[in-house]
Design a protein around this nucleic acid. Structure first.
Lengths: 245, 245
DNA sequence: GTCTATAGTCGGATAGAC
DNA sequence: GTCTATCCGACTATAGAC
């Protein structure tokens, strides 16, 4: 965002959609373009995730993607266009996992019958562990987490894409589960605060990975560590929602 | 980190200390330089906190500080020098608050007498609320939080400054309190994981501020909201460490 | 110590051949 | 759709007068 662009003032800042490319064409020719766009988005996740929008140059991006520099403005209008497209692709990927879990939880809860606390807690834990595994762990996934967290701290155009795409639906699932456990309406302030805290418990393993590794003298997060984290989460959340109220 | 410097290859990347300036001099002349350095560090926190090291140009930094562009390389050798100096200044400020609380907690716990759980929980809550107020709230403090979180995600030279300066001591205080509550050694893996989770619960109010405001339809975080958050934290932590084990 | 002016380099985006 | 060559603004750091 530093280098101020010198032409065609940012009047229409709406970035074009990721899929259809600049113009709708026949399929034979489109294949190359499709591949180029996909490569740019993939490379964009790797680079933007690690270094943020300002930390990546168009040349690096093109080189990492193995495409020509001019392909960036051609397919995405600008570097920021690629950035937003990465956000959309994140929503699509996570829609296949996180949002699916969230919807299942919501569906379970909407059947208006009383459920035992243990089952409600189970749903909550499902949300948390799927979140842990989806956006916090495995080197590649960490990039997604970093992308999302960066957008939380300094929202850009991409924030709305992420928020509507999965923060809102996933947050709603948390809220529904907690509301049921606390006997409060889902839009109660206290419920919202607890959502924030629970999500923070999970995300901290992505944000504070470096600190965690240093503190516990781990080389890296492997599957055994993850299982241990899940075990602790299970106990802690169990206690948190054990008693009354 | 984008614009590659063209002279005097980055051989000695040790940034010079913040305080003494380029050369030790008499006091009469030093005053102006001192002020310039202070202004640069202050402006650095505002800008680096919000936009990260790559999102700030030397021109913006100099302009925000109200000093001349050339003062940056003169006093801090480079833009990154200012960045590290900001980290040192953060440690000093937080040392006056957060680390002080951490030390008090550690002192309380080191007296090897058994303490009632309620008192241990009180110490833990003191850590959490001081952290909440110190690095998460009040517009200016948010900058500190963002600076720290960014360093967690993409550590630079400044990370070690922050880690040794307060992450390690504060984390140790958390660990000691939790260890006492769980009846485990402070370096137990489970304790480390719980530290991570508790810290995440607090930090999420800094990281996810935008999401929280949207979710609860708050305009901004005011003192009443903070007190409500503290109340919920108190209850949740109370439940989490209520029972046996 | 502070300033102006400038050097030297890299940045995003484009033009136009293929 | 992709490529090379190129424009030109903006960057960091420096030189040297004050």
């Amino acid at each position: 965002m530093k280098q101020i662009k010198h032409s065609s003032d940012r009047a229409r800042s709406t970035p074009q959609a990721i899929s259809p490319g600049p113009r709708g064409r026949s399929s034979a020719v489109d294949l190359r373009g499709e591949k180029t766009r996909a490569r740019l988005v993939e490379a964009g996740l790797r680079l933007f995730g690690r270094h943020g929008p300002d930390g990546v140059t168009t040349r690096e991006l093109a080189s990492e993607a193995g495409v020509n520099l001019a392909a960036i403005p051609y397919h995405f209008r600008s570097k920021e266009g690629v950035y937003v497209a990465v956000a959309q692709s994140i929503v699509e990927r996570l829609g296949g996992e996180l949002v699916r879990v969230a919807e299942r939880v919501n569906a379970s809860l909407s059947q208006s019958q009383r459920r035992p606390r243990s089952e409600l807690i189970g749903l909550l834990l499902e949300l948390m562990t799927s979140m842990l595994r989806t956006i916090c762990l495995s080197q590649e996934r960490t990039l997604v987490g970093m992308f999302v967290i960066r957008e939380q701290m300094q929202p850009s155009d991409a924030f709305n894409v992420l928020y509507d795409g999965f923060m809102r639906p996933v947050g709603a699932a948390y809220a529904n589960a907690i509301a049921a456990l606390r006997g409060l309406p889902a839009d109660d302030t206290r419920v919202g605060i607890e959502v924030q805290m629970l999500v923070g418990q999970v995300l901290m393993f992505c944000i504070g990975r470096e600190t965690l590794l240093r503190r516990l003298r781990w080389k890296q997060l492997d599957e055994n560590h993850i299982r241990e984290i899940e075990r602790v989460m299970e106990q802690v959340v169990g206690q948190q929602f054990a008693g009354a109220r």
